[in-house]
Write a protein that binds this DNA or RNA. Structure first.
Lengths: 254, 254
DNA sequence: ATTTAAATTCCTCCATGTGGAAAATTATTT
DNA sequence: AAATAATTTTCCACATGGAGGAATTTAAAT
């Protein structure tokens, strides 16, 4: 992917949108420019263009994300039933654990966070809906890998190099295979600070016709997530993932 | 607004995204190029850039809207409580009427469709979430205008010229004022093919601290929406709008 | 195997996006 | 209310980066 020449303005426009989304509230041009390092004029021009299409709205000099994004989001949801089906189950999982719950979509190649319920605790992990997630060092990702066919898993391993993100990341293929078979045994996956230092997760895959189409996970700071608590959450994650899989497979027209 | 020089690639990229959203399913480059008239290479380059940011995903050669739009959509929702609050009430309205229900957001200046529940009937109106709506020729829009203060309404009329969209569009200020005062009397607004030929609507405004922040409407083809049916739907729209307003005003931290 | 169609890369040209600086607003202070 | 400061918006000359035709590669159909 790097090497394909990309369009600069477009990348910048995406940055501007992301910046607005991160700010989470109407912000002035200066605030935006303060966050992304670009000339004011450039950002201004981009905002104007985006505004023309309701991707950005301006209320008394402040800029904010506009309603046009809803059109795209509803189109995405139309293609991804998982999101609609899973929502109530995620709430159930959240009620039980009171920790950050993620829903992950997997299209056979890549996995993405597509929904998130935040923990009420002050200390929480930072994650972003829509972001890509690494399969080999996350609970949800490993749960997905564990339910792939041998051929698919081989194909994945062939094209992926295991890069260490924390001291705990599994970078050895043999160790990863061992971890995956343990996941198949236990019924859910664990991430012991393998993706982000200080964060532990449990996750389980969602299956449709025997193939993984997504996963759910529960994440918490390591100090709130030890042995017993993790096991408890893991069992629940497994249970909820099974329920979602069932709901997905009993859909009209499946 | 026209006159502000806009960035061409950006406009084109937006067109591509809209095109993908309209197609509603993974589509090939050729299909996309067939819909928007641009050189294949250009669209290809745009898609590649969008893909890099997960705004577009590619599954076996087909392109589709990607999960990154969810991030922006959730940011928008965070700024617009209305959407979350209103949803169950919209369903109630839909159950009652079985016609297309719209939720509109109004920021004091502009109004946008932010949610839509489609009628199950085959004949339905075409509308798009995120699209801008004209205030003086739609039921929801007129309901909003009818609940503005005299000053705000004056300001609106001063900067707006009433352009006829169908033979029925109200283009005379006096007639519009009369229509608005009738709306205040009746409690809900009607649109008798004023915005789109063949489509009638009823609508009512949603108020927060006495000021309109949105509206709801029910739309149907004229032949399915005559006198009595419209009155019935109108009363229901009024009732539901009142409920949403109440829910909105009894929010924690209001 | 051969043909057809679609996707991707290459490459040159010049339109288009860039960003510094000035002008116009708007907010803040005296 | 006047003056100052900060911010937003317009202007414009330059050169970069995006455009798109043509060629190449890849995939599908016969």
């Amino acid at each position: 992917m790097p090497g394909v020449a990309n369009i600069r303005v477009l990348e910048r426009a995406v940055d501007v949108m992301n910046c607005l989304a991160e700010l989470g509230q109407p912000s002035s041009l200066s605030e935006i420019v303060g966050k992304i390092s670009l000339p004011k004029t450039t950002v201004f021009r981009i905002l104007n263009t985006l505004e023309e299409h309701s991707l950005v709205v301006r209320c008394n000099g402040q800029y904010a994300i506009g309603p046009a994004v809803l059109f795209w989001a509803s189109a995405y949801k139309g293609q991804n039933v998982l999101l609609e089906i899973a929502k109530p189950y995620l709430v159930e999982l959240w009620d039980f654990t009171r920790e950050t719950v993620h829903l992950i979509s997997f299209d056979g190649e890549e996995a993405y966070y597509i929904e998130k319920l935040d923990t009420p605790h002050a200390v929480r992990m930072h994650s972003r809906i829509g972001a890509h997630l690494t399969l080999y060092c996350t609970a949800a990702g490993k749960a997905i890998l564990a339910s792939l066919s041998k051929e698919e898993l081989d194909a994945y391993l062939r094209k992926t190099q295991l890069i260490s993100k924390t001291p705990n990341t599994i970078v050895d293929r043999g160790n990863l295979m061992a971890a995956l078979s343990k996941i198949r045994q236990e019924g859910f996956a664990k991430d012991l600070q393998e993706n982000e230092e200080g964060i532990c997760c449990v996750g389980a895959a969602i299956l449709q016709n025997g193939r993984p189409v997504g996963a759910i996970s529960v994440s918490a700071p390591a100090y709130r997530f030890q042995e017993e608590k993790m096991l408890e959450a893991g069992r629940k994650v497994q249970e909820i993932a099974a329920k979602i899989s069932e709901a997905l497979n009993s859909l009209p027209g499946m």
